[in-house]
Write a protein that binds this DNA or RNA. Structure first.
Length: 494
RNA sequence: CGGGGCGUAGCGCAGUCCGGUAGCGCACCUGGUUUGGGACCAGGGAGUCGCAGGUUCGAAUCCUGUCGCCCCGACCA
């Protein structure tokens, strides 16, 4: 393995290759033997579990409860909301049969043609339809509202080109689906959940994001409004990292979800849906990692501290075990996720490189010299700085260092984002500068024509109209010359 | 579905033009020496050369067919 790891491609030379190698070599995931699908390996899944834990907690604090709905959706459900079908029809996997049989002409099994389903079943690309079909049974009165459900599950979209974590045919995500008595309440919920995504990205992933609203062409199939968080990767491309949709009464009407309001009038329920996926893993990797491998924010790292002993002389290991075992216990008692790696089948140098590749935030090393001097070496992954200090108060120091690393990588990423968002209102200049990546704030007249033109000319798209940008005087559209309606955020994206 | 490429050991590849004992690196196993930044030495195991036909004394190599995968476009959390 040693030589392979040394060969990790440099970020600057071939970003895609670097990303792929990193995902595989850091033991996060690998391509499955099934078209477009991914095997998430234990270490990668441990990071995803950390994300799940924190997100789940945040959802529940707002009254959301977890539930589970079926994987298979009758085809007829998908026909009920016109825009929704149109958006997803092209990428659905369809179950047509329910039985196999021995191949009469040879080995193996074949699909039994006699076992054709009367109505085909779709493997969910998203669950609005099946969930709103169920909500019809749950919702009859304003007293039944709101309904606030989330599910953690897999979905399948038959993508043409796939990439580990960023775009796979099957992916893991959470999808929240809420039903409300009023438009205001649903809109409020849509914004609230986007806010949670933004907070999660910044506080846990240490990844700054731009919040905003999608253009009509980019919004979710069947939504009235789609809100998004957009992050900027180190190669200058944007990544849509989470979305929250205000669905109006579209699904309420399509599935006949009506309730009697306080005025005793029949009314359709108002809907939202919101989701983040294992794509966040890709975002995490591309935001912080360097040429030595992964850099994980301490708040999400499955392993926050690793302790490595170095021993030569007979008897050294016992002494180190005693001292380091004590430090390990003290760190653990503070809730720090720590591992004492005294395995003797790997040399220290190998362990150092391996834990760096895997992004463990802090490494503690003690050898014979340290044992005599009462010192220990502390290495922080974000800067790779090493320092030798006395073991006195080491737990306090490490605890503070973890917080410092969390903050430092956020500040670094935030600084990168801030210095790569440009104001631009000249199209020629835009076309030239977009080649180097980054995000551009451009005056936009709000029409599909100019949006399409940008995409055609530059492959860049309107990511969103940002919330925190002053929209009072957007200026003149850089293509049409008409008065602009917004300052839009434009970038090339994943 | 259009344009390019590739199927040989677990992984990455050479060998194919010009037919003649199945190779290399990494990984793996055993033993020893090592251990403060990805160890070294010695030995060992592992492959129906994608599949099916054909030509030939003989095919990874030539011919025909076929299957699969990857990369570049259209789709996208």
């Amino acid at each position: 393995m040693a030589k392979e790891l040394k060969d990790l491609t440099k970020r600057s030379t071939d970003y895609s290759r670097w990303y792929n190698e990193l995902v595989v070599k850091a033991d996060l995931a690998e391509q499955a033997d099934v078209r477009g699908c991914m095997v998430i390996k234990p270490y990668g899944y441990a990071i995803w579990e950390r994300m799940q834990q924190e997100l789940d907690r945040m959802f529940k604090e707002t009254g959301v409860q977890n539930a589970y709905f079926p994987l298979l959706i009758p085809k007829s459900f998908l026909s009920k909301e016109a825009e929704h079908v149109e958006g997803f029809a092209k990428e659905c996997a369809v179950v047509t049969h329910y039985r196999l049989k021995q191949n009469p002409d040879g080995d193996g099994v074949v699909v039994d043609p006699a076992a054709r389903l009367e109505e085909e079943l779709i493997i969910r690309p998203t669950s609005e339809t099946t969930i709103w079909n169920t909500y019809k049974k749950w919702i009859h009165s304003w007293r039944d509202l709101p309904v606030l459900c989330n599910q953690w599950c897999n979905v399948m979209r038959w993508e043409m080109r796939t990439r580990l974590f960023l775009r796979t045919s099957e992916f893991l995500w959470q999808e929240g689906h809420t039903a409300h008595a009023t438009r205001e309440e649903a809109e409020e919920r849509t914004r609230q959940m986007l806010g949670i995504y933004a907070r999660f990205a910044e506080e846990f992933m240490a990844m700054p994001v731009v919040q905003g609203v999608k253009s009509e062409t980019e919004r979710f199939a069947g939504a009235l409004d789609t809100y998004t968080i957009e992050a900027l990767m180190q190669d200058g491309k944007a990544l849509q990292s989470g979305t929250s949709h205000f669905l109006g009464q579209n699904f309420g009407k399509a599935f006949g979800v009506q309730f009697v309001n306080k005025e005793n009038q029949l009314e359709y329920a108002w809907a939202t849906s919101w989701g983040v996926s294992t794509r966040l893993m890709g975002a995490l990797i591309m935001t912080h990692s360097d040429d030595n491998g992964l850099v994980l924010p301490p708040r999400l790292a499955p392993l926050q501290v690793v302790i490595v002993p170095i021993y030569k002389a007979e008897g050294d290991l016992e002494k180190l075990n005693a001292v380091l075992g004590g430090i390990e216990a003290e760190l653990r008692s503070r809730g720090i996720r720590v591992k004492y790696d005294n395995a003797d089948n790997k040399r220290p140098g190998f362990k150092f490189a391996d834990y760096e590749l895997k992004g463990v935030p802090v490494r503690l090393v003690m050898g014979g010299r340290d044992l005599e001097n009462g010192t220990i070496e502390v290495m922080r992954r974000d800067t790779l700085d090493k320092e030798t200090r006395t073991t006195e108060g080491i737990a306090d120091y490490v605890q503070a260092l973890l917080a410092e690393i969390q903050n430092n990588i956020y500040v670094k990423a935030k600084n990168f984002l801030d210095t790569h968002i440009y104001e631009c209102s000249d199209y020629a200049e835009f076309r030239e500068r977009i080649k180097d990546g980054g995000m551009f704030l451009c005056p936009w007249d709000g029409t599909e024509e100019t949006e399409a033109r940008i995409k055609e000319d530059t492959q860049a798209t309107i990511r969103c109209v940002p919330f925190d940008v002053d929209q009072t005087n957007p200026g003149t559209d850089m293509i049409s010359g008409r008065p602009a309606k917004y300052k839009a955020l434009v970038a090339r994206s994943y």
